[in-house]
Amino acid sequence: MADRPLSELQREVDQYISQFKEGYFSPLAMLARMSEEVGELAREVNHQFGEKPKKATEEENSIELELGDILFITICFANSLGIDLTEAHNKVMNKFNTRDANRWTRKDTE
């Protein structure tokens, strides 16, 4: 699938959620769901890069899918609160490019 802007992803998720009577979960429920997804990501990272191998009985999963789940719930959370994720991203990048401009050691650009 081609690169798509965040606004399009937000619309796609909203169209999906809008077909159900339940709609978006409450902010607290979404935070709990997000925490659960981050835990699943941590488990996958630990299996792949840590000291805890998967049990033979555990189903196959991937870091990519877990990040996708986190992206989905993040979009749901933003949509439910009327937050434009492109605007949020721009504000965060401005913060990193100003406040944190000299925080890290830059690579040589030669």
Rank of each mutant, 00 (worst) to 15 (best):
L9N: 08
V13C: 11
Y16W: 12
I17S: 01
S18I: 03
G23C: 07
F25D: 12
S26K: 11
P27R: 06
A29F: 04
M30Q: 14
L31V: 10
A32C: 04
A32H: 09
A32V: 08
M34T: 08
S35V: 06
V38C: 14
A42L: 11
A42T: 09
A42V: 01
R43Y: 00
N46D: 14
N46V: 02
Q48F: 04
Q48G: 01
G50V: 07
E51Y: 07
E51F: 08
P53Q: 05
K54L: 07
K55H: 11
T57Y: 01
E58H: 06
E60K: 00
N61R: 15
S62A: 06
I63T: 01
E64C: 02
D69H: 05
D69S: 07
D69K: 03
I70W: 02
I70G: 01
L71A: 15
L71H: 03
T74R: 02
I75E: 00
C76L: 09
F77S: 08
A78L: 05
N79A: 07
D84F: 08
E87W: 05
E87F: 04
E87I: 07
A88C: 05
A88D: 05
H89S: 08
N90Q: 14
K91D: 12
K91R: 15
V92T: 06
M93N: 13
M93V: 15
N97A: 10
N97F: 07
T98Q: 10
R99M: 06
R99I: 11
A101V: 08
A101D: 05
A101N: 07
N102A: 09
N102I: 03
W104V: 12
T105H: 12
R106P: 02
R106E: 14
T109E: 14
E110W: 10
E110Q: 12
